[in-house]
């Protein structure tokens, strides 16, 4: 372990460098956000007279209250339903079906690498046919479907690791499949469900393509979708744009900081399994 000393320093140096590179854009945005509105600030320079009011103006210009509400509604529409459907399907595919029904699972997995762009055009016409264009359901319903490959794959992988003995013991204890699912399997699946919830929350909150295509009114979009519109409207006013962007990315960052451990675990596992 003595030989490891200089290496630790090298590692720390590298990491510090990476962290700086990661943080610089945020810092640069932050200083720019404090410059007088309409001015052209420099990359990274503390303004002589920090304009904290820019944040308040951006809050109003971006209609932040409405945006948070809209994003929350969309997340509430997408995440619980997706998690429930995926948990049920994951259990069904892992515990209730044998080799002959493997094709159902393979059909789900086939969608894992599907770029959303590949289906966005027909989705537009489909959502329009349903009469849902420009409503939040235009984002909610398709997202549930689009999340199924990953979510089902994720939950099935979890249920495969639950010993069959527990299922059988529950059967002998007199549980129907439905009761076994709720009383035995779901409580045991809590960590997997938690991670899935975090991932789906992030992906929904940050979803951009669907809101841009399917919903015109920014106040009915997700935060990310609204940010696109905000840029279109205020793109030339750098301080205001930066202030607005910081505000818009603040909710997820705050949640992330609060639940850092869970988020990191979910993101790491999520990509390994996905």
């Amino acid at each position: 372990m003595t030989a490891a000393k200089p290496k630790t320093w090298l590692a720390r140096l590298l990491l510090a460098l990476l962290m700086t590179v990661t943080l610089l854009p945020f810092l640069s945005m932050f200083t720019a956000a404090l410059a007088p509105s309409g001015s052209y600030p420099n990359g990274l320079s503390w303004p002589a007279d920090p304009q904290w009011s820019n944040f308040a103006r951006a809050f109003e210009a971006a209609n932040m209250g409405q945006l948070v509400l809209s994003s929350t509604l969309i997340v509430l529409g997408v995440v619980p339903v997706s998690v429930l459907a995926a948990t049920m399907a994951g259990y069904g595919l892992a515990k209730l079906t044998g080799g002959r029904n493997r094709w159902i699972y393979l059909v789900f997995v086939a969608g894992l690498t599907l770029p959303f762009e590949a289906v966005i055009t027909p989705l537009y016409y489909e959502v329009r046919a349903f009469g849902l264009l420009n409503t939040r359901f235009a984002i909610i319903l398709p997202l549930i479907g689009l999340y199924m490959p990953f979510s089902v794959y994720w939950m099935r992988a979890h249920f495969l690791n639950v010993p069959n003995d527990l299922t059988e013991a529950a059967q002998l204890d007199g549980a129907t499949r439905w009761k076994e699912f709720w009383l035995v399997q779901v409580p045991l699946a809590r960590p997997a469900i938690m991670s899935l919830t975090i991932l789906l929350f992030l992906w929904t909150w940050n979803q951009f393509l669907l809101p841009v295509v399917l919903v015109k009114d920014p106040s009915r979009r997700t935060m990310a979708g609204a940010l696109g519109a905000f840029q279109g409207q205020w793109g030339t006013d750098v301080p205001l744009l930066c202030a607005g962007s910081l505000l818009i990315l603040a909710p997820t960052v705050l949640l992330f900081l609060a639940f850092q451990r869970h988020f990191v675990a979910a993101l790491l596992q999520g990509s390994v399994k996905g």
């Binding site: 010993p163 003995d165 527990l166 059988e168 013991a169 529950a170 059967q171 002998l172 204890d173 007199g174 549980a175 129907t176 009383l183 035995v184 409580p187 045991l188």
Partner: peptide
């Protein structure tokens, strides 16, 4: 299985990890 009037003790015991002993025994 649940309607056969049988009870089984498994090699792995198959106790429900999230329940107390009391709840494990009383689950059925």
């Amino acid at each position: 299985p649940r309607d056969r009037g049988v009870a089984m003790v498994f090699q792995s015991y198959a106790l429900y990890p999230h329940m107390t002993v009391y709840d494990n025994v009383g689950f059925g």
